[in-house]
Amino acid sequence: MGVVAQVTPPVAEHGEGPVWCPADQRLRWVDMLVGDILALDPVTGVITRRHVAPVVAAVRPRSGGGLVAAVERGFALLTDDAVELLPENWSDPSIRMNDGACDPLGRFYCGSMAYDAAPGRAALHRLGPGGAVETVLTGLTVSNGLAWTRDGSTAWYVDSATHRIDTFAFDPATGDLHDRRPVVAVPPQVGTPDGLCLDVEGGVWVALWDGGAVHRYAPDGRLTAVVELPVRRPTACAFGGPDHADLYITTSRHGLPADDRSPAGALFRIRPEVPGFPDHTFAG
């Protein structure tokens, strides 16, 4: 496995949700609590920043061009020069969106959390290509990483409060998630599981908030790799680059002491031995 490289300065206060966008060969991620989407051109190193809303939690490319995003209490559709905010999913200002992904059928999911992380107040919501929103899971606490295996048959999922990584069977005929099963238990002393992604062998890469590392687990739950970072709060990871061989890792400064001198908030990159594969796009 390669060496961890710092790709950007600490450009985000709370960097989250990286995704590779093949259409323009850029990595995008969010500075969540200021409501900005950042984009990196890995060839030139140029970073651009676009304000979307007071909070932007997750972003994915749309198959017809543009982006879909989760904002504080709902979803938004973005073109190059416009932001269309869809109707809010709820009115309670104490709950916000947190992390999301698209499924093999082109639907965009995003899970929520209470700002104070109160147990059981979160849910997983799904935006269909036609604009309909459904609530898929309830009784969650901090809905976080979500990703599908390459064959689409399994979804990996994190509710951070459980300190687990679970799988769901995914039925492409009905589009339902079912048979939730705990696969990985993350000891609290090594950090809290946050955002995740998968490689071509079915290995799951998960960022460990307050753990200063990204772990890779085999499909059977065995720990197979540890990537240590010079920051306490990695938040999420995603494969990118033309061959999806680079693992990008977002990080956060949120909640750190004012005298923290680490490069928290920077974007990092490493090239593992096993590559990833393209994320699903939103069909709407």
Rank of each mutant, 00 (worst) to 15 (best):
W29I: 01
V183P: 04
E88P: 02
G240D: 05
V183G: 07
D171M: 03
G241S: 07
L208A: 05
T79A: 13
G111C: 07
V184G: 00
G100V: 00
G195H: 02
I47M: 14
F170C: 08
S262G: 09
C110H: 03
A169E: 10
L67G: 03
L223N: 01
G131W: 14
T250E: 02
I165V: 15
R150E: 15
L137S: 06
L85N: 08
G139R: 14
A82M: 11
A225Q: 10
L67I: 05
F108V: 09
Q25S: 14
P272G: 02
V71R: 04
A238R: 04
F268A: 08
S63W: 10
L40T: 02
R269A: 11
G221L: 06
R232G: 04
V183E: 08
A122E: 06
Q6M: 14
A123H: 11
A123K: 10
G128V: 01
P193T: 07
R60V: 13
G64T: 15
V274I: 14
R253C: 01
V11F: 06
R49H: 13
R269D: 00
T8W: 07
E273A: 13
D24T: 11
G255S: 03
A69I: 05
G139M: 13
H178Q: 10
V200F: 09
N89L: 07
S252N: 02
R269Q: 06
L140S: 11
R73W: 04
A39R: 12
V226E: 04
A114N: 11
T135C: 13
R73N: 12
G66R: 12
R121P: 03
D171I: 05
V55P: 02
R261E: 13
V71D: 02
G202H: 10
P275Y: 11
A258Y: 01
W205E: 05
R126M: 08
G111I: 09
V231T: 08
V83H: 12
R126S: 07
V4K: 10
T250P: 00
T192A: 09
W148F: 14
A185W: 06
G128P: 00
G128F: 13
D171A: 09
G131C: 13
A283P: 07
L229E: 07
R181Y: 05
L177S: 04
S63N: 13
P278N: 13
T138A: 13
I47H: 04
D259K: 01
V19Y: 01
R60C: 09
T174M: 01
V133C: 09
N89V: 10
C197H: 03
M32A: 10
E228C: 07
E13D: 11
W209R: 04
G195Q: 02
T44C: 10
W20Y: 00
C237G: 03
L124V: 04
V46H: 15
A155C: 14
R181C: 14
G212L: 04
P54Q: 12
R96W: 03
G64A: 15
R222W: 00
C197A: 02
H244Q: 09
R62F: 08
L105I: 06
V56R: 09
H254T: 05
V274H: 03
G221D: 03
A169R: 14
